[in-house]
Nucleic acid binder design. Sequence first.
DNA 1: GAAAAAAGTGAAACACTATTCACTAAAATA
DNA 2: TATTTTAGTGAATAGTGTTTCACTTTTTTC
Lengths: 202, 202
Amino acid sequence: MAYQRSALMQERLAENRQRILASARQLVARGGFRAASINAVAEVSGLSTGAIYRYFPSKSALFIEVLSSAVRHECDILLAIVDGDGSAGERLRAAVESFARRALQGPHLAYAFIAEPADPEVEAARILCRREFSDVFKRVLRQGIASGEFPKQSVDVSAACVVGAFTEALVRPTEHSARRRQDKALVGAIVDFCERAVTGTA
Amino acid sequence: MAYQRSALMQERLAENRQRILASARQLVARGGFRAASINAVAEVSGLSTGAIYRYFPSKSALFIEVLSSAVRHECDILLAIVDGDGSAGERLRAAVESFARRALQGPHLAYAFIAEPADPEVEAARILCRREFSDVFKRVLRQGIASGEFPKQSVDVSAACVVGAFTEALVRPTEHSARRRQDKALVGAIVDFCERAVTGTA
DNA sequence: GAAAAAAGTGAAACACTATTCACTAAAATA
DNA sequence: TATTTTAGTGAATAGTGTTTCACTTTTTTC
């Protein structure tokens, strides 16, 4: 008598789950955590509030998944750059630039990675996310120091500073918004700053 | 018939006001905004919840005052260093070091300056606070660049990066906490990072 | 097609907290 | 001291947003 889901049904359920995640991500990207209530998620994804709880046990669980999947995606991109070709300095520049550029596309999402969320559970996930980012930068730093390209420095601290430097520099403009012209210059200045900080050369 | 407050009474009222502010600051410093409900503030300051509203029109107003007075105090300290003696590089190092050291004393308070608060009104105040901090650093940067001591760079971006770099590096340890031994090394590494970033010399 | 199981609904229950307000206590005036 | 004005109380109110649940609809099994 074991009930079995048809392939079609299974697919529809998976689709719903994805739609819920996508809706939540979209809401965070547009208006931050604040704008992403369960009701809003339900509305955007075309389901009822109750249905959300069939897919996720709680609001926290939903947003933890939103955050961590977004971060995994970003980290994959960064890792490809960091483990690519070129000198450590070149790869660092490329990684910072890529990260900064992408963050400017969805400033609120970037903000959510840094912002204190209401829920302590999500907070824990957020901390892990930042660690993942800085871990990527630690890789290049270690390589550059080992090869003598970078001066000796605390890899932990420098990686955290790099992440902090551009999140601060990027997130601040969130309020103004809509100044696409200056983006290029902003990204360039951030990249320069981080390069000097790490390489110690003007 | 105009009612006049006695000097004693006036003093007691001012004292209460200060006690409320101090209680709120203490609660934020210990447990972040999250722990600082009006009820908690009332309890700590030994007044009733209703009484708080005789001194401050709203929770937001209270916390805006807490934040801005704390920031003013920190900025005063930084300004004294920045406008003091020594080369631009020395003063920058001293300012970063002082800021980092003091932030380590009350990590949650430092966190509150960065964290997204629930209330948009407080958020606005928070943004101003960060700008005040970075304005202080802009001063040294301009001086150093003018004298040729620092290479050319975007003063706005570099100042934001400096603030971001050490807030990230400082705030992260908040979770662990209670590792006073490594503090000195941490502060040193942050100062080095910022110096390299700004001066471009290892 | 009827019975059983699961998915989906959305209004109501619940939790959390800022804010109010009818009231009491204290202080200033006369 | 009696009266008026202000300070202070804290339970009730109100707004917000998550979670539940009795119920309907859809899907699967026989």
